[in-house]
Design a protein around this nucleic acid. Structure first.
Lengths: 295, 295
DNA sequence: TAAAAATACTCCATAGGTATTTTAT
DNA sequence: ATAAAATACCTATGGAGTATTTTTA
């Protein structure tokens, strides 16, 4: 403290409220588990601090001044707000309240995400859940910068500072216009597919996943990529429009457009949906990932 | 303090906010005009008090936990609320903000009150003015019990604990139905009027005023009071309906009903509007009375 | 190894206690 | 005369300072 101006303290507000309620210093002191003289002193200090008399007092009667009346209302609210802030901090640290920003790739939005979200919401009704659709690459960046708490990505590359939890794995399938020559085959070899125009995801946005797809085509002819897309929905639209074929996770079968067919892609690697948490590692993030894996 | 649990203090909240903003104990301490070690200790105490870690810290990086983020928002608001409460108390004690409950008799509501209220509102825009119509007797009671701050009464009796300020004085007039036999006279003697049925105010509600009226009739025949009323408007209505005649302050001329006429009452005493303040004597009450007399 | 947080200690300002005086009814 | 607030004075808790150690990137 020393020579610094010290300022009002919550203790003084509580003392003031006790006196305002009892309108009697001795009784208020008793209620505060202290004696009367220091209470008198504390109120005088408060009044000096405010520059305003809050009580009109003689040795026989204590009553609030008008300024005191107004100050009382505000002081009551402040003391309650402090208690609420305390409670809220405890709730937040136990994961009963809070905010969780979850990124997800579009292919997670069919079964995995809705189920997990429903489960999590039931367990954490006072947690605000913010769902942000984003490509894997964008999510990695956002997680590292703390703009997301959890991400659901496809085939992310290992990055220091991200903790990964595999969720589901599935095969890759060829996606073709219904009238495509290869649509007659029950199964398609990558080398055959590679002879046709292709629609793929943009590499920088989904480096891991696109890497898998390129792996499937390894050793074959040079690819003819006529279009790069950002969303699975766009890829499907382009295929339906006959722009080209593509390679997508098998779960795309749950969301097919008319005029588009899928065929197994022989010898292709598997693709994985993976949950990622920033190194900071929020407790709520863990709970969310648990809700996803509990499905 | 001794063995009592002490609780959170505003100082701790301010320290917390400084650290939350700087994310660096030494810089926050500097901003708070103190040194780093006691700041570290104060934050640890806050965390003990909350039962929650608000900062995730190593010697290299300080960052808010999720609970800390939430606590920060509330703490900011609390600190601002305290400053606002302080300001408000100062404003209230200087009469810039506040509440003023003013009682008034109906006969004040024609010229005196509207003008005074307009003036006062212009001078005190942030003061909430509550206008309560009430008879003089009721106002005396309310002022003594602190339910009103100021009253505008007619001919109040001197009461210990009330400070009176005369506002205006006026004569008494006879109020008659237009077709009344006495309506032909230019001026009416009380003794004549006393021969007809009368409508008067209720004595207990307006003891001073009714006393004046009875004084006017003193020495004449016994009065025939067919109705006692509470409001001036009611009296006028009853006169218009032919129930009887009455005696009212001359200013009733500003608010006459059709079918009602007024005539001077010869030799009648004067009646006074008087402002009254409770002994407590609020500064705002004085200002209001000044606004009334400044007209 | 360097920057920053944590620890150890010292000191004194002040919250709170006890005893007493003042004041208003 | 009495109850209650104000004053005087004392004690000791704990907030803040200085010096130093520990930690991690």
């Amino acid at each position: 403290m020393h020579y610094e101006r010290v300022g009002m303290e919550l203790r003084q507000l509580k003392y003031f409220l006790a006196v305002a309620e009892e309108l009697n210093f001795a009784r208020a002191a008793e209620r505060l588990h202290m004696t009367q003289p220091p209470l008198t002193v504390a109120i005088r200090k408060l009044e000096e601090e405010l520059g305003v008399k809050v009580f009109e007092r003689t040795t026989r009667r204590v009553q609030l001044t008008e300024a005191g009346e107004r100050f009382r209302e505000r002081a009551e609210k402040i003391v309650l707000d402090v208690a609420a802030a305390k409670q809220d901090a405890a709730d937040a640290s136990d994961g009963r309240v809070g905010r969780l920003r979850v990124g997800f790739v579009s292919s997670a939005s069919y079964a995995l995400l809705p189920h997990g979200v429903r489960q999590f919401r039931a367990d954490h009704p006072r947690v605000e859940l913010e769902l942000v659709p984003a490509a894997s690459g964008e999510q990695v960046e956002a997680l590292l910068e703390g703009r997301l708490d959890v991400g659901i990505l496809r085939d992310p590359e290992r990055v220091p500072g991200l903790e990964l939890t595999p969720l589901v794995q599935e095969s890759l399938v060829a996606v073709l216009p219904a009238d495509h020559p290869l649509a007659a085959s029950r199964e398609i070899a990558p080398a055959e597919l590679a002879r046709f125009p292709l629609v793929l995801f943009s590499y920088p946005l989904m480096p891991g996943y696109v890497g898998r797809v390129l792996e499937a085509f390894e050793g074959g002819p040079r690819l003819n990529v006529v279009q790069q897309a950002v969303h699975q929905e766009t890829v499907l639209g382009l295929v339906a429009a006959g722009v080209g074929c593509s390679v997508l996770p098998a779960s795309v079968g749950d969301a097919l457009l008319p005029g588009v067919v899928v065929r197994p892609l022989s010898g292709a690697p598997l693709t994985r949906l993976v949950a990622a948490r920033g190194a900071k590692g929020s407790a709520l993030g863990l709970r969310f990932i648990e809700a996803l894996t509990a499905s």
